[in-house]
């Protein structure tokens, strides 16, 4: 077991060795790289990273450049979990047979967008989680296929206008509720499942460190505000992330060993969902009088989910 890196505050954290370099081609203000940095810089252990096809993959390893100061692999869109499970299996095999390249502690992370997680990579993730590999799966959840021009995924929330669920004369955009990956991964019996937002670096780092300390599969749902497709100013990414947390749209919570729910942060002031929706172009059409019911439904869903989590936490199950 490796020693947990001490990160009490940013003055300490910022002395970390940087493991994800600039010069990548992510959009200005993209939250993906913020999440990646919070995560990979939170440990001094050696890392092997796999990444699903998507914004992060395509922008961090455009030949002839790599932004990764750790070993990294990308195979396809749907197999980030299978890929890292192979790397982890090889690590285990070499270790068991005393053929390891190094005695240094090694951790395994898969990064994928919500398309590569909720949709096309779902089977691969489910398989790898069920097999119990020692890996951490981080979903960079920007609620759509942003790398290809903002199509809907099963993470796109109701009312969201995407290029394949556009708002129109007779449509308010996406009709389905966002898939609940947290519960699905908890049901796999993952050792640790957590949701975080990049604007709360402390929460993210804490969850990253809990992930590194775990020995079984870990699933992290990291919400990743996307200036390009959510349609807001790039400087506002962390503001949006903050409002997502404060409005309880994205509760910061964790589920340990498949059942124990802890809500890590309880906003004191009630921020209505309307405020969050109003900050983004993708929900602009919801403010037409005829779509008012969608905002009401949004609020109802957020409240119900929040209530559910609190009751689970209280019940200890």
């Amino acid at each position: 077991m490796s020693e947990m890196k001490q990160i009490k505050n940013l003055k300490q954290f910022s002395t970390s060795k940087e493991r994800f370099q600039g010069g990548h081609r992510l959009c200005p203000g993209c939250s993906h790289s913020i999440i990646v940095r919070e995560f990979v810089n939170a440990t001094d252990d050696e890392l092997c990273v796999s990444t699903a096809t998507g914004c992060l993959e395509v922008c961090s390893t455009i030949y002839p450049y790599t932004s990764w100061d750790v070993s990294w692999i990308h195979i396809g869109f749907e197999n980030a979990a299978a890929a890292i499970s192979g790397v982890e299996a090889m690590h285990k095999s070499l270790k068991n047979n005393k053929k390891s390249f190094s005695d240094k502690p090694m951790k395994f992370i898969a990064f994928a967008g919500d398309g590569g997680t909720y949709d096309i990579g779902f089977q691969s993730l489910s398989g790898a989680a069920e097999r119990g590999h020692d890996f951490i799966y981080v979903c960079l959840d920007n609620e759509g296929y942003m790398n290809t021009g903002g199509q809907r995924s099963s993470s796109t929330p109701i009312g969201g206008a995407t290029t394949t669920s556009p708002a129109g004369k007779v449509s308010y955009g996406e009709k389905k509720l966002k898939k609940d990956m947290m519960q699905i991964m908890a049901a796999h019996g993952c050792e640790y499942v957590a949701q975080s937002a990049p604007s709360n670096w402390k929460d993210m780092v804490k969850k990253a460190q809990k992930s590194f300390a775990a020995s079984g599969p870990v699933y992290i749902n990291a919400v990743s505000p996307c200036p390009t497709e959510w349609k807001f100013d790039p400087s506002m990414s962390m503001e949006i992330s903050k409002v997502m947390v404060e409005s309880r749209v994205v509760p910061l919570y964790e589920i340990e060993n498949g059942s124990k729910v802890t809500v890590n942060y309880k906003p004191k002031n009630h921020v209505p969902v309307e405020e969050y929706l109003g900050m983004q172009g993708r929900f602009k059409h919801l403010f037409k009088p005829s779509n008012k019911h969608v905002i009401e439904e949004w609020q109802k869903n957020v409240d119900a989910k929040w209530e559910y989590l609190l009751r689970r936490e209280e019940a200890g199950i």
């Binding site: 092997c48 796999s50 692999i73 195979i75 396809g76 749907e78 197999n79 979990a81 299978a82 890929a83 890292i84 499970s85 192979g86 790397v87 982890e88 299996a89 090889m90 690590h91 285990k92 095999s93 070499l94 068991n96 047979n97 053929k99 390249f101 089977q123 691969s124 489910s126 398989g127 790898a128 069920e130 097999r131």
Partner: peptide
Amino acid sequence: VDGEFVMVESEHSAMSACVGAASAGGRV
């Protein structure tokens, strides 16, 4: 046998895990 045997959930993942394992550095 001494190596790891990974019983995956599909052939797609089988070859994906093989690619991951081979990149990691061993016989696959």
